[in-house]
Simulated assay, not measured.
Amino acid sequence: MSRNTPTQEHTYTLTRELDASAAEVFAAWTTPARYERWAGAEAGSVEMDVRPGGAWKAVMVVPGGHRVPIGGSYREVAADRRLVMDMEMPGAPEPTVMTMELAERADGGPTRLTLSQVCATAEERDMAEEGSTMLLDSLTAHLAER
């Protein structure tokens, strides 16, 4: 097996309970203007064609003010339930795959968001997990503002 072949060892999974419906969370993740507000994207840089095979892109502004262009395509789209996206990162030889799943409780309780990503190396996984944790913190704050 090649050193850069993604394995289960290089996967992370994060889970959050969000005080919002699955439809609200999905819209925050798939509407360019909303995504821009909470995800740290540069104004006007987010484009999303949310359908299987559709492309997405954004320029993220990371701590220190650095601009990082990211993008990819949607592999799977199940409204209010699941997104599977390829993510192309600068310097990465191949895209990684990120999956976002939503589970809404029948009793109206919090929506469970599960985010996972398969990375090529342990170092890439650690950096991606840190970035995704910050992303989910920001999403949680954004949904609390409504």
Rank of each mutant, 00 (worst) to 15 (best):
M1Y: 13
M1V: 11
S2D: 12
N4Y: 14
T7W: 00
Q8A: 10
T11H: 11
T13S: 12
L14A: 06
R16N: 03
L18H: 05
S21C: 02
S21Q: 03
A23K: 10
A23N: 04
A23H: 11
E24P: 04
V25R: 02
V25M: 07
A28Y: 08
T31H: 03
P32Q: 02
P32D: 01
A33T: 11
A33M: 05
A33H: 08
Y35E: 03
R37M: 07
W38L: 06
G40V: 01
A41S: 09
E42L: 13
A43C: 06
G44K: 01
G44V: 03
G44A: 03
S45M: 01
V46N: 07
E47L: 15
V50L: 10
R51C: 00
P52S: 07
A55W: 02
W56I: 00
K57F: 00
A58G: 06
A58H: 04
V61A: 06
P63H: 05
P63F: 00
P63Y: 02
G65R: 01
H66G: 10
R67Q: 11
V68I: 12
V68L: 07
V68M: 11
G71L: 05
V77M: 04
V77G: 00
V77W: 07
A78I: 11
A79V: 13
D80E: 10
D80P: 03
R81P: 14
R81T: 10
L83S: 04
L83D: 13
D86W: 10
D86P: 09
M87H: 12
E88I: 10
E88K: 13
M89F: 09
M89P: 09
P90G: 02
A92S: 09
A92F: 15
A92V: 12
E94C: 01
V97P: 05
V97N: 10
M98K: 09
M98A: 14
T99M: 01
M100H: 10
M100P: 01
E101G: 10
E101Y: 07
E101Q: 13
L102W: 02
L102N: 05
A103P: 09
R105E: 13
D107P: 06
G108K: 00
P110A: 15
P110M: 10
T111Y: 09
L113K: 01
L113T: 01
S116Y: 05
V118G: 13
C119M: 08
A120H: 14
T121Q: 05
A122P: 05
E124I: 15
E124N: 09
M127L: 13
M127A: 14
A128L: 10
E129Q: 09
E129K: 02
S132N: 13
L136N: 08
S138M: 11
L139S: 05
A141G: 04
A141R: 15
L143S: 08
R146P: 06
